[in-house]
């Protein structure tokens, strides 16, 4: 169940301002790690915005997720600099190690894998970000070591 009070508190922070729907959904995403259906109902009812409009935004943006994600989020940077330094291989290996595809979550809900477009730390590509930790110059052997650390 979603903590209704928490959702109301986030909405309250934006009361009276225009054009805040995206910001509000980002805050919900940060709070719950995804955007639960109940939260969308509460936002819709409080702001008098059709649910369809909220779903439209939440499904458009990469930073928002409409299904629960794993305890650890793994982002593999697919920016051009990482790409020419072998990011595809790193993504493939991470996926095969976790037995999921990008955009999916492991069965035990421990990891979600996501591709991300350039994090702007191109000097250390290929880059993997687990939760908030950046790992640079990732090699084939490095992938295993990184995942093990969070297992």
């Amino acid at each position: 169940m979603v903590d209704r009070e928490k959702v109301l508190e986030i909405i309250e922070g934006y009361r009276g301002q225009d054009g805040i729907l995206i910001q509000l959904l980002l805050d919900l995403q940060a709070e719950f790690n995804w955007i639960p259906r109940e939260a969308i109902s509460i936002v819709s009812e409080q702001l008098r915005v059709p649910k369809s409009q909220i779903y439209r935004i939440a499904s458009f943006y990469k930073a928002m997720s409409l299904c629960p994600v794993g305890r650890h989020s793994i982002q593999v940077c697919m920016g051009t600099a990482c790409q020419v330094r072998g990011a595809q291989k790193v993504l493939d290996l991470t996926g095969s190690r976790l037995m999921i595809k990008p955009g999916e979550t492991t069965h035990d809900m421990s990891f979600s894998l996501r591709r991300v477009n350039c994090l702007g730390c191109c000097a250390m590509g290929p880059v993997i970000v687990v939760d908030k930790d950046y790992h640079g110059n990732v090699t084939a052997e490095g992938v295993d070591r990184i995942i093990e650390r969070y297992d």
Binding site: G79, T80, A81, C118, G120, C121, C122
Partner: peptide
Amino acid sequence: DEGDPGAFMDR
């Protein structure tokens, strides 16, 4: 909104 992959001067 520096979206170009490989660009980070604005950042």
